[in-house]
Every structure is written in structure tokens, then in C-alpha cells.
Simulated scan of single mutants.
Amino acid sequence: MALRSSTFCAKQLLVRQLVQIHRTLGNMGKSKILKSFPRLQKAFQSAEDEDFRDQFESAMNTVSGFGEEKPYKVEVKAADNSLKELTDIAWQRLIKDPYAGDDAVDPDIKKLFLRLKHGSVEQIERSLTLLADSGKHGKVISAAWEVLKEIEGIHWSVFSASESAKKGTPPDLLSRGLGTCSCCFGEFHVRNEKMVRHGQRKIQDYMWSPTCYGVAYPPLEISTQGLEEFIGRYERGREQLIAEIADPEAIQTVPLKTKEGVGKLNRGEAGFDKALDAYVVKLKRDVQDMTADLEILRDRLEHWSSKLSNEPKGPGR
């Protein structure tokens, strides 16, 4: 995280204050942490949000120094991932959903809100500047400001924890509530023997999707089921592309990029043959990428299968 030197000392003071607040709350009981973020707390008040509340408490416990020992960097990273997911949900519930579709809200404020980001301290500082310079006032602006400030405090707590965290990987991830995802192979929190929600990074091109396929499965420390099914899904997708390449005459529609987005072009329409040629070239590239991906996935399946077969079976395993 790049830091602005002019604000570094002030931010470090903020970190120490936040950590002290969290430690004080910890003496009252770890379940009280969310109450120190009153705006975010409102996003997770329903009975159905119990899992979200537990995730928040667990992640903040990690970055606020409640443990008997310093966390590992991988634990801080997992906590950071959980907190980013939760703050995304909170922003959606507290700001986007209530105000984006409200006809009573000033259209200029709606446009302003589209520019607000909260994924890092730098983004939040820019967002706060946009709010301050907008000349807008009222309940809506105040709500956005307060939510951003609470999320900023979380970012700085994570930064403070990452600075002092231990390097390396703990000997037993599961004992620390972590596991390895069977799809993206990232190390994230585990709840009820399943991976918590997290974004997916593709193996080759490093693009992100909102939710990883592996969240429905146990971590690889428990089972390779998710990886096996993911490989099967990948193989079926690859075979489907190969079938399309083998019989281009059967392709009746191809995607077409337009100014409005991605449309489609039907066989018989002007330009279809040229678009079909380009589409087939793309399919061939996709098959090459998927073939490389599958080689990596199969190697990792072999590694984890061997690791699981050699591990002693403990109680409940």
C-alpha cells in the first residue's frame, strides 16, 4: 500500500487509537467489536446476518491484536479479504440500495456516489475529497461520509497488523481457522468446513470474478472434492469449445462488440463470415489457455491427493 508521507504520522496515530479502542472492547468481550462501527453494524442487524457478524468479529480479532500471539501474514491477508467482502456488502446495503433508486435523491448526488470507492485508504481519501468538494449537504452525504470513515479505520487496522505480522505459513492452517481454496488456491477463512466467500483469480490471466467457485467446497486440507469437480467442469467447457471449432458451419450466432456493449450477429447478416473467423480464432486461443490451466490443476490435484493420503487421520477426519 503506497502511503502519503505528509499524512503517515497522523495515520499511524489513528492506527494506535483504533487498536486501543479494539483492545478495550476486547476486555468487554470480543463480540462487542462490531458495536464500535455503528454505521456498519446497521448493515448486519438481521437474524440472517449472524454469519456475517461472526466473520467480522473473527477478522477484526485478527487485525486488532486480541490473540495471545502475533498473527501470521497469511492470517492478516485472510482477515483483510473477509473485511473487504463485508464492507462491500455494507456499502451496497447502506448506500447503494437505499439511495441509488430513490427518486427523491438529487441526481447529482447519485452521479457523485458512482465515483466513490472504498477499496483502499487512498480510494477513501479521494472519495472523502469528492464529498467535501461537491458542495452537497444533508443526510445522504453524511451517511456516505460516516461509512467511508469507518471503513478507513478498518483499512488502517489491517495495515497496522500486517506491519507486525509474522512471516511464513502456520504449520496447521485449519487450527487457525484458515484453509486453501480448491479453485483459486488462495488461503482464506473457513467456516463450517467450507471456504468463506471470496473473489476468484483465474490461473492464467489474473482476472477477478465476484465469487469464487470454491466457496461451496471444503478447503484442500480436508478434501479435494472441489478441485476434482472444478477440473471436470473445466474439461467439459474445453470440450465444448473444441466441438465448436471442429464444426464452424453449425455456429449460427457470434458475439459482436458494439458501443452499447456486447451484442450478437446472426448467420446471414452482413459481416457474419468475418466475425465468425475472428470468433474461431478466439476459441482456439481459449482452448490453448484452458489446456494450460488443466495441466496446472491436475498437478495440484496430484499434490493435494498425495498430501491427504499421507496425513494421519485425526478425530472427526
Score class of each variant (00 low, 15 high):
Met1Gly: 14
Leu3Phe: 15
Leu3Gly: 08
Arg4Glu: 07
Ser6His: 06
Thr7Ile: 10
Lys11Arg: 15
Leu13Val: 15
Arg16Asp: 13
Ile21Cys: 14
Ile21His: 15
Gly26Thr: 07
Asn27Pro: 08
Met28Gln: 13
Lys32His: 14
Ser36Arg: 09
Arg39Val: 06
Gln41Cys: 09
Gln41Trp: 06
Phe44Met: 01
Ala47Asp: 14
Glu50Arg: 10
Asp54Trp: 06
Gln55Tyr: 02
Ser58Val: 06
Ala59Thr: 00
Glu68Val: 05
Lys70Glu: 03
Val74Phe: 12
Glu75Gly: 01
Glu75Tyr: 00
Ala79Gly: 03
Ala79Tyr: 05
Asn81Met: 12
Asn81Phe: 08
Asn81Tyr: 09
Lys84Asp: 12
Glu85Ser: 07
Thr87Glu: 00
Ala90Gly: 02
Leu94Glu: 04
Gly101Lys: 12
Asp103Glu: 14
Ile109Ala: 14
Lys111Val: 13
Lys117Glu: 15
Lys117Arg: 14
His118Lys: 08
His118Gly: 08
Thr129Gln: 15
Ser134His: 10
Ser134Met: 11
Lys136Ile: 05
Lys136Asn: 05
Lys139Ala: 11
Val140Glu: 14
Ala143Gly: 04
Ala144Ser: 06
Trp156Asn: 14
Ser160Val: 05
Glu163Val: 13
Glu163Ala: 13
Glu163Pro: 08
Lys166Arg: 08
Lys166Asp: 04
Gly168Leu: 01
Thr169Cys: 08
Asp172His: 03
Leu174Ala: 01
Gly179Glu: 04
Cys181Ile: 05
Ser182Phe: 07
Cys183His: 12
Cys183Gln: 05
Glu187Gly: 11
Asn192Trp: 03
Tyr206Met: 06
Trp208Leu: 10
Cys212Ser: 07
Tyr213Trp: 10
Gly214Phe: 09
Gly214Leu: 04
Tyr217Trp: 09
Glu221Lys: 00
Phe230Gly: 10
Gly232Asn: 09
Leu241Glu: 02
Ala243Lys: 01
Glu244Ile: 03
Ile245Pro: 00
Ala246Pro: 01
Glu249Ser: 04
Gln252Gly: 15
Leu256Thr: 11
Lys257Thr: 13
Glu260Lys: 12
Gly261Cys: 08
Leu265Asp: 05
Phe272Pro: 02
Ala275Thr: 00
Ala278Met: 03
Tyr279Pro: 00
Val280Trp: 00
Leu283Asn: 04
Arg285Tyr: 14
Arg285Met: 07
Arg285Phe: 12
Asp286Met: 09
Ala292Glu: 14
Asp293Leu: 02
Leu294Ile: 09
Leu294Ala: 11
Ile296Thr: 09
Arg298Glu: 11
Asp299Gln: 07
Leu301Ile: 03
Trp304Val: 01
Leu308Tyr: 02
Ser309Lys: 14
Gly314Arg: 03
Gly314Leu: 02
Pro315Tyr: 10
